[in-house]
């Protein structure tokens, strides 16, 4: 739920010496993204996307670095980052399986997919396997209603899924 406040007050923030927003990325964003917008704040989403694409999730340190880069207070970036479903504020498994649970997918039987994944991976939606390979999530509409049910595995959409071909997709992952 987008509007639920995350537990930031009591959270320990892990710090590392090496920056998440390194000089190469910084230069690239400065040249490519910043000139597109009249304000630096408007680059928040593209910057967070770039950071998440690189690190697979958004540690607090990365958000703070993004804030510095954008000339904002860290809380402003946190405010934006917590609102959006796509931004992962906890570490995720190597492969993020997002099964669509919206109406067309439910009519076409997404529950059997979720049940099959639950059995196969031994986790509930929201959980990550012990080896850190898979995270299972149920999400709202992925815009693939005509080819329901569907699931997004990291950035790849798989459509017209059955238990068998979803199994095949997962087994073929590197």
């Amino acid at each position: 739920m987008a509007w639920i406040v995350k537990n930031s007050a009591t959270q320990q923030i892990d710090k590392r010496d090496e920056p998440y927003l390194d000089d190469t990325l910084r230069a690239e964003l400065e040249a490519e993204i910043i000139p597109r917008y009249p304000t630096r704040q408007a680059a928040t989403l593209p910057v967070l996307h770039a950071l998440q694409h690189k690190h697979h999730w958004l540690p607090h340190q990365a958000l703070a670095e993004a804030a510095g880069f954008l000339g904002l207070h860290p809380s402003e970036v946190l405010d934006t980052a917590t609102f959006y479903e796509d931004f992962r504020l906890q570490p995720m498994g190597q492969y993020l399986i997002m099964v669509c649970q919206s109406l067309s997918c439910e009519l076409m039987g997404h529950t059997s997919l979720v049940d099959a994944l639950r059995d196969k991976l031994g986790i509930e939606p929201g959980g990550t396997t012990d080896d850190g390979r898979f995270t299972l999530l149920t999400v709202e509409c992925l815009g693939s209603c005509g080819t329901a049910p569907c699931a997004l595995v990291n950035e790849t959409l798989h459509e017209s899924l059955t238990i068998e071909n979803l199994d095949k997709v997962l087994n073929e992952l590197p």
Binding site: A2, T39, Q41, P46, H49, T80, Y84, E85, E140
Partner: peptide
Amino acid sequence: RGAGAYICGEETALLESLEGKR
């Protein structure tokens, strides 16, 4: 690119999101 929020399809929410806010 948006980041997974249905409400950003509402025109003024889209503008807020474009400006880098919730």
